[in-house]
Amino acid sequence: ERVRARYDYEAQNEDELSFKKGDIITVLEKDDGWWKGRNGKEGLFPSNYVEELE
């Protein structure tokens, strides 16, 4: 599954994923509120910062 970033997100910890608004992220795992994904790097990000691609 792929999602698009709705906002910029700056990683707060080294296991998190940074991205810019409009970036496409491949979702690897979904957990409550935090998803694991890849966009060149791999890490956790808040699920409310992304939207599913149509």
Rank of each mutant, 00 (worst) to 15 (best):
A5H: 01
S47R: 09
R38T: 13
I24C: 08
E14Y: 09
K41P: 06
G22H: 05
R6I: 15
G43R: 00
G43T: 02
D8W: 04
D23T: 06
L17D: 01
A11T: 04
W35N: 03
W35M: 08
S18R: 02
N13T: 11
D23C: 07
R4Y: 07
E10L: 11
E16L: 02
K20M: 08
A5W: 02
N48T: 13
D15P: 01
Y49G: 04
F45A: 00
L53G: 05
E14W: 11
I25T: 00
L53M: 13
E52C: 11
G33P: 10
V3T: 04
V27P: 01
W34T: 06
W34F: 09
R4E: 07
Y9H: 06
N48S: 14
G22S: 05
E54C: 12
E51L: 06
F45V: 04
N48L: 12
G40T: 11
D8G: 07
V3N: 06
N39G: 08
K30M: 06
L53R: 04
K36A: 04
V27D: 01
Q12Y: 05
L53Y: 14
E14Q: 12
Y49V: 07
Y49M: 12
L44Q: 08
N13E: 08
N13W: 06
E1I: 14
E10Y: 14
S18Y: 04
V50Y: 04
S18I: 01
F19N: 01
D15L: 13
E51R: 05
R6N: 07
E54L: 11
V27G: 02
D23L: 01
T26A: 08
K41H: 10
D15R: 14
E51M: 10
G43W: 00
Q12L: 09
R38E: 10
G33W: 13
Q12C: 10
R6A: 11
E29P: 02
D31V: 15
L44P: 01
W34Q: 05
G40F: 09
N39C: 12
R6K: 15
N48R: 12
Q12R: 13
F45P: 01
S18V: 02
I25K: 01
R4L: 10
W35H: 02
A5T: 04
L28Q: 04
R38N: 12
E14G: 11
G22Y: 05
N39K: 11
F19D: 00
Y7M: 13
F45R: 03
K20V: 08
L53P: 06
E29I: 13
L28V: 10
D8H: 04
D15N: 15
E14S: 11
E54Q: 13
G37Q: 00
D32H: 11
N48I: 13
L53C: 11
N39D: 05
D31G: 15
E14I: 12
A5M: 02
K36I: 10
N13A: 10
V3H: 08
L44Y: 15
F19S: 00
V27H: 00
E51S: 08
G37C: 02
I24D: 02
Y49S: 08
E16T: 06
K30P: 01
D8L: 01
L17G: 00
G22T: 03
L53N: 06
L44F: 15
L28N: 03
Y7E: 11
I24N: 01
K21E: 10
K30Y: 08
T26C: 12
A5D: 05
E52L: 13
E51T: 10
I25N: 02
F45W: 01
S47K: 10
R6L: 15
N13S: 13
W35E: 02
E14T: 09
V27M: 03
S47Q: 09
F45C: 03
W34M: 12
R2C: 15
E14R: 09
R4P: 05
N39R: 10
E42P: 05
Y49K: 07
K21Q: 10
R38C: 11
D8I: 00
Y49R: 07
Y7K: 14
E42D: 10
G40D: 12
E10G: 07
E16I: 01
F45M: 01
D15K: 15
W35L: 05
V27F: 04
F19H: 01
K21N: 04
P46R: 08
E29A: 13
E1L: 14
F45T: 04
G43L: 02
G33H: 14
L28T: 09
N39W: 08
S18L: 01
K30N: 04
E16G: 07
W35G: 02
D8Y: 00
E42R: 04
V50T: 07
L17H: 00
P46V: 01
K20W: 05
E54T: 14
V3Q: 04
L28W: 05
R6G: 05
K36N: 05
S47W: 09
E52R: 13
V3E: 05
G43Q: 01
N39Y: 12
S18T: 11
P46D: 07
F19C: 00
P46S: 06
G40Q: 10
E54V: 13
E16H: 09
R38G: 06
A11P: 05
W34L: 09
T26N: 07
W34Y: 10
F19P: 00
N39V: 11
E10N: 12
I25G: 01
V50M: 06
Y49D: 02
P46Q: 07
R4Q: 08
E42I: 15
R2H: 12
E42H: 06
K36P: 00
V50G: 03
R4W: 09
G33Q: 12
P46A: 04
K20G: 06
L17Q: 00
V50Q: 02
E54I: 13
I24R: 06
E1G: 10
K20P: 02
E52F: 12
R38M: 11
Y49C: 11
E54N: 13
D15S: 14
V3D: 05
D31Y: 15
K21S: 08
L28K: 03
Y9D: 00
G22L: 04
F19T: 00
